[in-house]
Computed example of a mutant assay.
Amino acid sequence: MKDAHQSKAGDFLALSVFLSVAAHRSFRAAAIELDVTPSAVSHSIKVLEQRLAVRLFNRTTRSVSLTDAGERLAIKLRPAMTSISEAMREVDEFRETPSGTVRINASEGAIRWVIWPALMRFLREHPLVHLDIVSDGKLSDIVAGGFDAGIRLGEAVPQDMVAIRLTGDVRFAAVATPAYFNAHGRPVVPQDLHAHDCIRFRFDSGTIYRWEFERRGTAESINVNGRMTLSDQPLMVDAAIEGVGIAFVPEHLAEAALSDGRLERVLTDWCPAYPGLHLYYPGHRHVSSGLRALIAALRIGE
């Protein structure tokens, strides 16, 4: 008689579903990642729990959390499932053309700046590759989240990752309309911003961004005030153009409005350049043909 825990057909899929729910702490998020319905995820977990005769998740109407047994199973499973996935990816190298799913985690701004311009040409040239792009401003752990790679500013890339530069340096710009500055004056040093109406930025985590400046080795971090807070930087530019106040955004987003005079910048000598956007992935992980093709399509010449 076979052992009740012996692998059977469908176990790999069920365990993949389990790890996805464990990573997201959400049946719905796991369903989105796996491209199935939430009910299919729920059914898969229910069948797995019945087979193992143990509860893996604590569920309420508001939250999903791992039980002690579920936590132990997830810890044991992750390395094994990663090895299986890596083996499958290596077999992919024998294909003549790139194929498979490439999961990318990036901020919305990074997606619009570096992926979107090359997206349609990439999909036309690589019809067997499926791109799964997740917009995320939380600086998520790409390994725990099951992503092939992430895209972030160079200073935000974990040190143990392989990083490939995609853009030049990034500078921020403090901008507002000429009319705003005529009415309220121009800040000369960062501390002057406390007397101005500033358009604040909220990260996906809920944290309000403190405006960061530096000049001649002196750094300033300002917790600005203002009547508007947004979580979308292009909208911050639009709000500044409408005269709401001063926005602090990546320079390239305001470039058009600065060129035609709708916006003017201040504190220019306090806005240093930061390392640009980088695509990064774990150094120990096999790089699939699909990810290599995407890197080739996105990277700038060195």
Results as ranks from 00 to 15, higher is better:
274 Y>S: 08
198 C>G: 06
142 I>F: 05
137 G>F: 05
221 S>W: 00
154 G>Q: 03
247 A>H: 05
173 A>F: 12
48 L>V: 06
158 P>R: 09
92 D>C: 02
232 D>R: 15
199 I>C: 04
9 A>D: 12
198 C>R: 04
192 D>P: 01
30 A>L: 03
231 S>D: 15
7 S>G: 11
296 A>E: 10
16 S>D: 13
185 G>M: 00
197 D>F: 07
249 V>R: 13
140 S>P: 01
129 V>C: 01
76 K>V: 11
51 R>G: 03
223 N>C: 04
265 R>N: 12
299 R>D: 02
120 M>R: 15
181 F>I: 03
77 L>M: 02
138 K>S: 09
98 P>T: 07
213 F>Q: 08
263 L>F: 06
8 K>N: 10
168 G>W: 03
217 G>W: 00
293 A>L: 04
162 V>W: 00
214 E>C: 04
202 R>F: 01
189 V>R: 14
12 F>P: 04
273 A>L: 01
131 L>T: 08
207 T>V: 10
298 L>N: 07
225 N>Y: 07
177 T>D: 03
12 F>M: 11
38 P>F: 05
156 A>K: 09
247 A>P: 00
223 N>F: 07
140 S>E: 11
57 F>A: 07
93 E>V: 15
193 L>G: 08
15 L>N: 12
156 A>Q: 11
105 N>V: 10
25 R>G: 07
228 M>Y: 15
63 S>M: 11
41 V>E: 06
105 N>D: 09
22 A>R: 08
116 W>D: 14
206 G>Q: 02
214 E>N: 06
214 E>M: 04
80 A>E: 15
61 T>H: 10
140 S>W: 05
57 F>Y: 11
108 E>N: 11
237 V>A: 10
104 I>A: 06
225 N>Q: 09
10 G>M: 02
301 G>C: 04
278 H>Q: 08
174 A>K: 09
26 S>F: 01
